[in-house]
C-alpha cells in the first residue's frame, strides 16, 4: 500500500529550519538569558529527530552522513579539551577566560572560551539524543 504523507513532508521541510534557528538562538543567548549549550543541543537534536520521523534513516544519512556516537564523543573531547588551556597559565582546572574585542563591522564584542565548552556540550547532547531515539525506535 502506498502511503500518502505529502502534507507532513512539505510542512517539515519549512518547520525544521524554524527549529534549527531557535536552537542556534538559544545556544547564543545562554550567556545572560535562559538558554545555553544543553538546551540549544536539545532543540537542535529534536530537529534531527523530526527529520528521522518524517523521512527514513537512509534518506537522512544521505544528507547528514554522521555517526552520532562519534559526534557525542567529539563533543565530550571538545568540552574537556578546553581545560587544557588552564594548565599553561597556572590557574585552577577548567578556568575560562573572557575579553572584549573590537571588530571593524560588529563593534564591541564579548568573546569568551566558555563558548567552546558550550559547543562541546551541545554536540554531546545532540549525539546522545539522536543515538537514544534511533536505538529505542529500531524494529528488531
Amino acid at each position: 500500500m502506498k502511503i500518502n504523507d505529502v502534507i507532513l513532508r512539505t510542512v517539515v521541510k519549512a518547520v525544521v529550519f524554524i527549529i534549527l534557528t531557535l536552537g542556534v538562538y538559544l545556544f547564543f543567548a545562554g550567556h545572560n538569558a535562559p538558554g545555553g549549550g544543553f538546551i540549544g543541543g536539545l532543540v537542535l537534536g529534536s530537529a534531527v529527530v523530526l527529520l528521522y520521523l518524517t523521512y527514513d534513516i537512509e534518506t537522512v544519512h544521505k544528507g547528514m552522513p554522521f555517526d552520532f556516537k562519534k559526534v557525542a564523543a567529539f563533543g565530550v573531547l571538545l568540552a574537556t579539551g578546553t581545560a587544557i588551556g588552564s594548565i599553561f597559565f597556572n590557574v585552577p582546572f577548567l578556568t575560562q577566560a573572557a575579553r572584549e574585542f573590537h571588530f571593524p563591522l560588529l563593534g564591541e564584542t564579548h568573546l569568551s572560551t566558555v563558548m567552546i565548552f558550550e559547543a562541546g556540550v551541545a554536540l554531546t547532547v545532540i549525539g546522545t539524543l539522536v543515538t537514544i531515539i534511533l536505538s529505542i525506535s529500531e524494529d528488531e
Binding site: 502506498k2 502511503i3 520521523l53 523521512y55 527514513d56 534513516i57 531515539i133 525506535s137 524494529d139
Partner: peptide, 16 residues
Amino acid sequence: SKYIERGVIVERKSNR
C-alpha cells in the same frame, strides 16, 4: 500518529 498508523516510528527505508 505515525506509530498508530504504521506501527513503526523510524523506518529504515521507505517503500516508494
